[in-house]
């Protein structure tokens, strides 16, 4: 009786150890964030970026359609006329002011949908913590240079 129980227990342990041994050789599923990048799906909607054309011109033409589409009024656009000798964007119109309030944004992607020139896109950056409220309002310069290390992530 006791032996039977012992063998039964040993078998259970062996079974459990089997699982352990089976995973011993496999890669771990956890990621050492923030020291390592986590995998992001291609259609993930993170921090916004304003894109440029290959020739350096801004894609954004200041049409304000993203602003109209935005359900939370997170976007503010102020358009202006291009200097024909030094245009910022193709055509006559560009965005003089482009501000995006991350505290209001719900990352729905409607701005992306509305944009006729695919200028505003939701990028893959999701770590957007910040210390001051005003820093959550992204300016056009910040949106045009998405690589800017504005976001501080605690090292520990």
């Amino acid at each position: 009786m006791e032996l039977g129980e012992f063998l039964k227990g040993a078998a259970e342990i062996g079974k459990a150890m089997g699982v352990t041994l089976k995973h011993l050789g496999q890669k771990p599923v956890t990621v050492e964030f923030p020291h390592e990048d986590i995998p992001i799906y291609p259609r993930f909607r993170g921090r916004h970026e304003l894109r440029r054309y290959a020739n350096g011109l801004e894609r954004c033409i200041g049409c304000c359609l993203c602003e109209a589409a935005c359900p939370t009024e997170a976007i503010y656009v102020e358009a202006a006329e291009n200097d024909p000798d030094a245009p910022l964007s193709p055509g006559e119109r560009h965005a003089k002011v482009y501000e995006l309030n991350l505290l209001r944004c719900v990352f729905c992607g409607d701005c992306e949908e509305a944009c006729p020139t695919e200028a505003i896109v939701l990028g893959h950056d999701f770590a957007m913590a910040n210390y001051e409220r005003k820093d959550f309002v992204l300016t056009k310069e910040e949106l045009l240079n998405p690589g800017m290390p504005k976001v501080i992530i605690r090292p520990e």
């Binding site: 200041g62 304000c64 602003e67 109209a68 358009a79 006329e81 006559e92």
Partner: peptide, 9 residues
């Protein structure tokens, strides 16, 4: 008023 307004806003 060029480019200073959008009718919906």
């Amino acid at each position: 008023a060029r480019f200073a307004y959008r009718p919906w806003e």
